[in-house]
Each structure stands twice: as C-alpha cells, then as structure tokens.
Design a protein around this nucleic acid. Sequence first.
DNA 1: CTAATCCCTAGTTTTTTACTTGGTTTATGT
DNA 2: ACATAAACCAAGTAAAAAACTAGGGATTAG
Lengths: 168, 168
Amino acid sequence: MRLTTKGRYAVTAMLDLALQEGRRPVTLQDIAVNQEISLSYLEQLFARLRRNGLVRGTRGPGGGYRLAKELDLISIASIISAVDERADMTRCGGEANCQDGEKCLTHELWAELSEKIYDFLDGISLGDLVRRPEVLEVAERQEVVRQGLRSGRLKTVVVEASSLTSSN
Amino acid sequence: MRLTTKGRYAVTAMLDLALQEGRRPVTLQDIAVNQEISLSYLEQLFARLRRNGLVRGTRGPGGGYRLAKELDLISIASIISAVDERADMTRCGGEANCQDGEKCLTHELWAELSEKIYDFLDGISLGDLVRRPEVLEVAERQEVVRQGLRSGRLKTVVVEASSLTSSN
DNA sequence: CTAATCCCTAGTTTTTTACTTGGTTTATGT
DNA sequence: ACATAAACCAAGTAAAAAACTAGGGATTAG
C-alpha cells in the first residue's frame, strides 16, 4: 500500500461522491473547484477509478460520476490501490529479491508494515466515513460554499446555509 | 510518518550497525558496498542520523560509525523521522488547515493512519529486529559475502563462515 | 444544434530522490 | 613528518515521480 497525495485526492473525491449519493451525479468540475485541484488531473484519477469498477460516469449535460457500488462495499484501500497502481512498501514489490536476488535485511519488516496499513485502510469503507460526525460537519460547511459558487451570489450563502436541502 | 526508500536505506544501514555492535566501528564504505548504494548518499543520511543523536562517528583510519544508544532504545520510527524530516501523512502536516484554512474532509482519516503507522514502527526497536531469526539468517549470509570482499579471496569464504569472531 | 459533460493521449513543469564532485578535517600507523 | 583512511561538508546534477496542462474527441440532454 503506497501512500501519496494522489491517493488522498482520490479518497477525498470519492467521499465527495459518497456524500452526494442519491442526488444528481457529481461533475469533476465541481470536485475540482471544491478540492482546488486541476480538472484534467482529476480526470486521470477518475479514469483509473472507473477502470477499477469503483465509479460510473455518465456523459452529457447533467452527467457526472456516481459510485458504482454501495457505500459499504468500497474500502479506502481499494480506492488507493486503484489510483496508485504499485502496491506495497517493500523495495522489491512483494518479491523477495531486494538484494542480489535474496531477501534484504528488512524485507519482513516492510512486508509487515504494508500489511498493517492495508488492513487498516481495508477496514474502513466510504460508508464508515460518511457516518462520522466530523466528516458530516465539514461536508455541510463545504456544501454551503458550493451552493454559493453555483448561484454566483456569495452574499446570500450564509443566509441559505441553514436550510440546505438542494433542489434537483 | 512518511515512508520512502530513504527511510528504508536508513533502517537497513542502522540494522547493519546493530548487527556489528561490539566489534570495530562500521565504515560507510562497507555499508555502501553491502547495500549497493552510493557512499555520498549514505553520508547525507548519516549526517541526519548523527544530528538526531542516533549514531556517533569516529574519524581517521579504523574509524566509522557506531550506534549512539542501546539497541533497545532506538526505534524504527526514530530512524525514519531522522532522515525524512517531514513527519506525517496529512496534507497539512498536522495543522488542520488543509482546505481554505479549515480541515479537509479526510483530515482525521490521515491523522489516524499516521498514528497507527507511527505506533507500529515506534514499537519496534533495532534490538527487536536483530533478535529475529530471519534477520540473523540474512545477516550471516551477508557477513560471508562481506568477509569475502575484504579478503579478496572468495574461495575461502565458505570455510571461514562458521568461525566468525573478527579480531579487533 | 449546442453546450455540458465524460473520455483519451501526449505532453510540460515541479518536486523529490538519488547521486556526483570536490573538497576539509581528524586520527592512525610507519 | 607524512601518507592514508576515514568522517564530515557543500554545492551541484541527473533521474524519476508527481502534479499539472493542452487539446482534442465522443455522448447526450435540452
């Protein structure tokens, strides 16, 4: 399990989708603005998420991305593996040929660590995350900003903030 | 806790030192050959290890590096932190200002993961590692090769392998 | 038909990692 | 005293990876 900002972007984006489940599909443009990341870079990440069966995209106006599975069936580990194709922490990538074709001194250590990290992230699903109170809190704050950006009238945002139900 | 090849190099090198404790100090040249890594790069890593109080170097012929503390007082986490100065997994580095000065959606997730990784690696000392049978095994194999390189006579290596005590 | 959206490929820039060069300083043995 | 083996140091360069850009399609709702 490799951990980079790439994986972080992907998880945050997927969580974004998760939080909007049941509404209209989420556009990458939307996520790009929200997460302050380039649209094209996001497209590349989502290409991998799609190929790994984690999201489904629908084209055309009103289109966007939706999760391809239930919230509880998408683990954080699966998201990170999808975007960060290379898998583990060991130099050799699971093969035990790190040093002159033999195991290096610390092979087992890194293998164990990889496993721990994987188990941790595999034990957490998008469903788990969206149920966390602190995530809901942050999500609501962002929803407010998002509404403001869509309407283009930032002045009214704070007023509307309490009555968030979102038409469409 | 950031995990890169840098940290791996450092841990392997420290383990190398640990395995030779009590003998003469280990030269970087020695480690460089053993680990197939450039001498100067190693020097840079050891500069940080020294500044962090993990090793002591002695100059001049017969010099080299020794551990600055007891085996059981050096955790793997401390080694990795020493060479990879930046600490954690979150984008913001512990500050919760990942997004427009506020916590991003996944802040807690990465913070938790960081903690798990840290705890795991902090719970393992060099002492623990050198006592592992598989490490001892690999170490012996390498010792054989090392002796061979020093003497320049690879033929006799296997014979000497069992009676390893090293003068000095 | 048009615009919004996904989809795809091939770049470029930036950052990080790994390495190189070319020293200086300190201790040892002859 | 001198040569040598080592740590120490600084400034660069090369290579790889991460992050982003550009510029096109292809689909589909309206």
